[in-house]
Amino acid sequence: MSSIMPTEVPRRSQLSRRHIELGAEFERSGYLLLVKDYGSQTEATQAQILGLVDLSTLPRTGFKGAGAPDWAATQALNLPQQPNTCTVQTDGSLVAKLSHQELLILSDLNGKSASIERLNNTPVDPQTYSLPRADSHCWLAITGSQAAEMFSKICAVDLRSHKFANGEIAQTSVAKANSIVIRNDQGSTHCFYILTDVSSAEFLWDCLLDAMVEYDGRPVGVAALRALV
């Protein structure tokens, strides 16, 4: 059993029980608790083939409204031009533009991106509204050369690398659950973030594991994901 357990902190992933059942080793930094690994030596290699990572406890936020794009532009962010695309910031965070008036900001994999906290603590302009993105959605990553192929079993959008470029976003149905799928490659490894209604996290996790079986996909810890870069 891991020497660190999710109950140590108030913020617990909806998938904590799944992780414990899989023998997860957790890592903790302040109130941020993540799965470091599942005790396998080959997780970094696994992540290059097909890996599933729970990032739900990492910081993230969102803003929307007619004033949101202009306000965000004043916050030293490199904003994407088109809806359904994203840009990576210098502090490692990722800004996703979900519509002309909606932004989603994800932290780096260490939860250290300064922009999230800064945005959450900066007064917003009129017609700019914050969204509780850290809690409304779970955040999973699916990595590796087989990721797009696996997605084709549960998602009707063509996510193959030559059809869905790095930085593209699809808001669609994944295993019948409404989801935001973001392609954000880690180094040279394909990586998709998937953000889905948090209450469906276990359902989605189970569907993904089932769909991954034929490609030898497995859950891996965040350490394996960090090792890709």
Partner: peptide
């Protein structure tokens, strides 16, 4: 108009 062509089951 926002997301492009999708299966009608998404609507």
């Amino acid at each position: 108009p926002l997301n492009g062509p999708r299966n009608i089951s998404e609507f």
